[in-house]
Design a binder for these strands. Structure first.
Lengths: 198, 198
DNA sequence: GTCTATAATAAGATAGAC
DNA sequence: GTCTATCTTATTATAGAC
């Protein structure tokens, strides 16, 4: 079968990167074609439902891959506070590589389309759930209650997404580094408190 | 002078509400005209530079008004943890009123345009700075250091923006209520710790 | 599977009458 | 200050050749 999927893969990759820089409605199919180098005829061959389907696949596949990386990175860590700190700094470094021009595709597409496309909304919803679930798993392994673990995992996910918005706006990774520092501090207290109460 | 500004005001108002539901590129000028009921000829009369200027004014004015409301709400509070909790629940209630369809205009426009419009990026940047500064003021009044106050204020701002994205995606205010609860808890510890170290 | 041409629609913006 | 008509350009999507 060789690499008959390379046109499809190039389309997915180019779509995701453009979403990170311009969001959903800011990204045209012609631009995706041009950027990917994929033949235009391939787009509707691989994604018969057009833009909505292409973006849903791009978001879904990249989101799943990212959630898996998060899960693996947090598996078996001995200090959740340090692990969260590292995860946030890692995101900051990734952002820095693009000079704060590429990040936040999930948030952008969510805000632009959650009222008009159930398909996209559900894809992103599953992605965010996977992020939260990965973080929650680590917290459960360290003695937090189910309820508390969800709360903290939601806070970590939300603060990262929000900090990415601030970084894009400020053209600086400072906000991300600030929340990384602060969350490490707060989580240390929460862990100590939780361990004492066991 | 009567109300010669009402066409302008209606345009600003309609623009902001549409940005909250669909973002920047998802909102067309024709739709703004229609929704506002303002005469089409007025748009380029009040905003000669077109869409970019209209959106910048809408974001700027609404952002400034919101930052002022936050500042006043946090002025003279006796418990920062409770104040932040109330602020977050207040946002959740506002979101609930629109069934989670309207919120996140700042984040949406930032993610869509920060690479293509310096004007919009700077307007939003000032807005976020005003939010952070308002929260930071309260924390300074309660004995936190300058550096720590910025970190915590950034975390609060980022987590609220991120939680709004999660709420829009989930069509539920649950994420916002989760982070409200968790931030209250964590802030209580931070305050106790900070007071003890004085 | 891919390419080219094009249809159909909507976008932002402008000109000129009133 | 406002209205209507229109220009230019971009968008998503499709048809039909190869």
């Amino acid at each position: 079968m060789k690499n008959t999927t390379t046109a499809r893969e190039r389309l997915i990759q180019a779509t995701f990167e453009l979403l990170e820089r311009q969001g959903y409605h800011g990204t045209g199919l012609n631009q995706i074609i041009k950027e990917s180098g994929a033949p235009k005829g391939s787009l509707y061959y691989y994604f018969p439902n057009g833009k909505e389907e292409l973006v849903s696949r791009a978001i879904g596949e990249q989101g799943k891959a990212l959630a898996d990386r998060i899960r693996r990175a947090l598996e078996g860590v001995q200090d959740p506070a340090e692990a969260v700190y590292s995860m946030m700094l890692h995101l900051a470094e990734k952002l820095e590589q693009s000079k704060c021009t590429k990040a936040g595709s999930f948030a952008a597409v969510a805000l632009e389309t959650s009222n008009t496309s159930e398909m996209l909304r559900e894809t992103i919803n599953k992605t965010y759930d996977a992020f939260i679930s990965a973080i929650q798993g680590m917290l459960l392994a360290h003695g937090f209650s189910e309820a508390r673990a969800v709360q903290i995992a939601t806070l970590i996910t939300a603060s990262m997404e929000g900090a990415v918005v601030l970084c894009r706006t400020k053209k600086s990774t400072e906000p991300l580094r600030h929340i990384a520092q602060e969350m490490k501090h707060l989580l240390r207290s929460a862990i100590a408190e939780n361990d004492a109460g066991s």
